[in-house]
């Protein structure tokens, strides 16, 4: 019965999607507002990576909302996982010597790579979200490699709160200086150099640290070893 309803629903959805996609030929130019974004991005935002320009400048308010959603999810995981379930929560087995040493050795390099990704978010592919995920995976590596590793909860919470406050503060300074929230009030600098594009690198750094702290917190809460 369940499978039958499933098949009927799926065939309806398949037909609907096929009918819709029939009118959207693959690989055709149907840009509208995007043409404007592409043409004006470097002049408006100073960021050669147009996706970054959209995420952190044109639609920065949406990004603030997204970071808030991620924060809520992280908070929810924390609230769900602090009550230890009776059955689960076996300790992780000890890793071999190579894994332990390798995790300790690679950890700073992975952090550096994550930082590189979000510092160069306005010039090259990548940005705060990707860099934050890489940083969180560095902490995951420590959890897997070093038995009994505990992520300190307080610095993590401090980074998360401070970056959130910084994001909103930059937005309010933009409102005071330029008349709208998250205005790009710093000088744009010369295109293609690291210190350019005004507040975009700062905002992406803030986003990267915040996402990294939140995702590392999610991993720590899921493993359940983060209690103080």
């Amino acid at each position: 019965m369940r499978a039958f309803i499933g098949f009927v629903a799926l065939s309806l959805i398949a037909v609907g999607l096929a009918l819709a996609l029939y009118h959207i030929p693959f690989g055709q130019d149907r840009m509208d507002v995007a043409r404007d974004y592409l043409a004006r991005s470097v002049r408006d935002t100073g960021a050669p990576n147009v996706v970054t320009g959209i995420v952190v400048n044109y639609r920065a308010l949406d990004t603030l909302g997204e970071v808030t959603v991620l924060f809520s999810a992280s908070l929810g995981v924390g609230m769900l996982m602090t009550w230890r379930s009776p059955g689960g929560g076996r300790p992780l087995p000890g890793a071999s010597l190579i894994v332990r040493r390798g995790a300790g050795f690679l950890f700073p390099f992975i952090l550096l790579f994550g930082g590189y990704i979000f510092v160069h978010g306005h010039l090259t592919p990548g940005g705060g979200f990707q860099g934050g995920a890489v940083i969180a995976s560095a902490f995951l590596l420590l959890y897997l490699g070093i038995p009994g590793y505990l992520l300190a909860r307080r610095p993590l919470a401090a980074i998360e709160s401070l970056t959130g406050i910084t994001f909103v503060a930059i937005g309010i300074i933009g409102l005071a200086v330029g008349g709208y929230f998250l205005n790009n009030f710093l000088p744009k600098g010369s295109v293609f150099s690291l210190f350019s594009a005004g507040v975009i690198p700062i905002l992406y750094m803030v986003i990267g640290l915040k996402v990294g702290a939140e995702l590392a917190g999610v991993v720590a809460n899921m493993i359940g070893g983060g209690e103080e």
Binding site: V51, G126, A133, S137, V219, M222
Partner: peptide
């Protein structure tokens, strides 16, 4: 490329890790 990096780091990396942790606990 931006989306490809996000999918590789988040979709293939972290999502799998938290799934494995959840399966360990259940």
């Amino acid at each position: 490329p931006d989306v490809a990096m996000a999918e590789a780091a988040i979709g293939a990396g972290l999502t799998t890790a938290i799934f494995v942790i959840a399966i360990r606990k259940t």
